[in-house]
Design a protein around this nucleic acid. Structure first.
Length: 312
RNA sequence: CGCGGGGUGGAGCAGUCUGGUAGCUCGUCAGGCUCAUAACCUGAAGGUCAUGAGUUCAAAUCUCAUCCCCGCAA
């Protein structure tokens, strides 16, 4: 099979590695254009570009994948299958129709659940205990095509969006290569998604990371896990931004003052304990605005933190 | 070269303007004491003041360059 691979983020890396190591041929990698990244002036290509170049695969970086120029490029490439994974642009029907067979996509959820840009984050934030990866035949409507294969994995309590993404990217690579092989042998089925049980996972915004202490401790813990990396769960301490990188929900024997969510109710070597609506959140790793991230015990060593002070 | 803050023992900071012995609070370690509990008392260890060059009798401090970290923005 002659494949053109569309991918940009790290999530796509194991899949690209697996495909180029397989008997199939990745003749070209399409990825997002180089962009300024982060603060300062760093100008760099995507993780996938680096990987493709290291493997000597041709790289194509159209500003707009549906433009006429890009279309012409694809038409000149005699290709059997488009494989799209975490690419970052939506392909028009015209593009999807270019390969001899069709185009497939791997999505990091059990479709039709969590369609959209941030399925892993939202699964964790919502406290799901299982998720998975799904290979679909692509249609013009995002993440709505018929299912070719699907596999689920559990979400462990220690998992964050980062660790889960790693696991899912490996799973995606496995599912993808076997899907490609079964397509080549023409032994596959297309099962339509059940529209009635569809749900959506939109791209996260900065504001999604803001902690509402009126929620239960377990929900806040899930927010911290789901916002790890970006945007990061945050609250405010003395009117300064306080990011929380690691925290654990713990039982609090009958909070007598549930009308004061966000109140610091204890300081110990384990961390800073904050009262939530139900239960308490033990903050274990954090970062103050303008400072490095650090263990809560180091933070405690350097600050006098009055019990009773409120966060938020 | 998008805007801004910063780099001083393990953590948080003062000192920089106005150059002159490396300081404070906390932590760590040792001993003591003990229902004062993120306990208390005594003592100790631990620092190329981000890096390089320059000015100077003398640089954490002044000058120039570089590196790195963080907030905003994406």
């Amino acid at each position: 099979m002659n494949i053109i691979f569309f991918g940009s983020s790290k999530f796509a890396a194991p899949s690209l590695r697996a495909l180029s190591a397989s008997k199939h041929r990745v003749s070209c990698v399409v990825t997002q254009p180089d962009r300024h990244k982060g603060r300062g002036l760093h100008f760099s290509g995507t993780a996938i570009k680096t990987l493709a170049q290291a493997s000597g695969i041709r790289v194509f970086q159209p500003e707009r994948v549906n433009s006429k120029e890009a279309l012409d490029f694809f038409k000149g490439t005699a290709c059997d299958l488009f494989v799209v994974i975490s690419y970052g642009q939506i392909l028009s029907q015209k593009v999807l129709d270019i390969p001899k067979l069709f185009s497939i996509n791997v999505h990091a959820s059990l479709l039709p659940k969590y369609r959209g840009a941030a399925p892993i984050s939202w699964a964790v934030i919502n406290g799901e205990t299982r998720t998975g990866a799904t290979v679909i035949k692509m249609t013009a409507k995002m993440d709505e095509g018929p299912v070719i294969s699907r596999e689920q994995i559990g979400i462990e309590p220690e998992d964050t969006v980062i660790t889960l993404e790693e696991k899912l990217s490996e799973l995606a690579a496995r599912l993808l290569t076997s899907a490609v092989s079964s397509i080549e042998k023409n032994k596959y089925s297309l099962i339509p998604q059940d529209e009635n049980s569809a749900s959506y996972a939109p791209k996260l915004k900065k504001e999604n990371g803001r902690i509402d202490w009126r929620k239960n401790a377990v929900e806040i813990q899930n927010l911290v896990r789901g916002c790890a990396g970006w945007p990061g769960a945050f609250t405010f301490y003395k009117n300064k931004l306080l990011k929380i990188y690691r925290a654990r929900a713990i039982q609090m024997p009958d909070s007598k003052r549930p009308e004061k969510p966000g109140e610091i109710s204890g300081i110990s070597k384990a961390g800073v304990l904050v009262r939530a609506q139900e239960g308490g959140l033990l903050i274990e790793e954090l970062q103050m605005e303008g400072k490095r991230r650090m263990e809560a015990r180091d933070f405690i060593a350097g600050h006098k933190i009055p019990v009773g002070e409120r966060l938020g």
